[in-house]
Amino acid sequence: MRAREIRRYEQLLRRLDITIPVPFDARTFSEHIADKRGRPIHILPMDTSDATAPCGLWLATAKADYVVVDNRAPAVLREHILLHELAHLLCDHRGRLRLDAADLSFDFLDPAMVERVLGRTSHYPDAQEREAEGVASVISRFAARRSPVPRPRDDADERTAALDRVSSALAADRSWKT
């Protein structure tokens, strides 16, 4: 990410004036967003490990937002997936993915009620996906710099621990300004 993009994403977050909790917790952050927008955000952990399904989705209906997060991903990645989907919401992105194309079924949700669908995959083919990834990264950096307590992990997985160490090291790089 270039410095110009980082500044633009930081300005977006400041304009939205959403409280970033300290210590940082992505679910609490999503509650702050929901309060600010005046509509609920429901976080749905699902197994999206099928190769055809994105690892995260944001589904918007007339009354609520639903964020699907891959529950099989390591904790640090689940948090980033959630932030990526929240970034779509904050940027008011318009989805081009059809719900049936996501290859996920939602017993509680009529596909006809879904107004927008955006999915997170491991590549970012368009500007909306790149912007959501950039905003999510800026939120993570901002939160890591202000969180005095390391975020808890829900497992002792070595890969998760390694990702946490890398994330902490990157957050310690204060060469860019907020």
Rank of each mutant, 00 (worst) to 15 (best):
L97H: 03
P152R: 07
A136D: 06
F24A: 09
A53V: 14
R37I: 00
P54L: 09
M46G: 02
L97G: 00
S140L: 15
A143I: 05
E5H: 15
D50F: 11
V22L: 08
R153K: 03
E129M: 08
W176H: 07
A127T: 15
V22Q: 10
R153C: 04
G134P: 06
T19F: 10
P111A: 02
R15A: 14
L99H: 02
L83E: 11
D126H: 12
E85A: 02
D126T: 11
W176T: 13
P54V: 10
D65L: 00
E5I: 15
P125F: 04
L104E: 04
L118E: 12
M46L: 15
L163F: 07
H123V: 14
I6S: 08
I6A: 10
R116M: 04
R4H: 13
E31D: 15
Y124H: 14
V67G: 01
Y124P: 06
V149Q: 08
R2G: 15
S175P: 06
I6K: 08
T48G: 11
L13T: 13
S105A: 08
L118K: 02
I43A: 05
A75R: 06
F24S: 11
E158R: 13
D65H: 13
H84G: 04
D164H: 10
A132E: 04
S175F: 07
G95C: 03
L16T: 05
L170H: 03
Y9G: 09
D110H: 01
P21W: 08
A26Y: 08
S147K: 05
R78I: 06
A73Y: 11
D154S: 14
E79T: 14
A161V: 07
S167V: 04
H93E: 04
I33E: 03
D65I: 01
A87I: 08
T52I: 05
R14M: 14
E131I: 06
K63W: 03
S167G: 09
P148N: 12
A171P: 00
C55P: 05
R39A: 07
R145H: 05
A112F: 00
I139M: 06
R165A: 15
A161M: 12
S122Y: 11
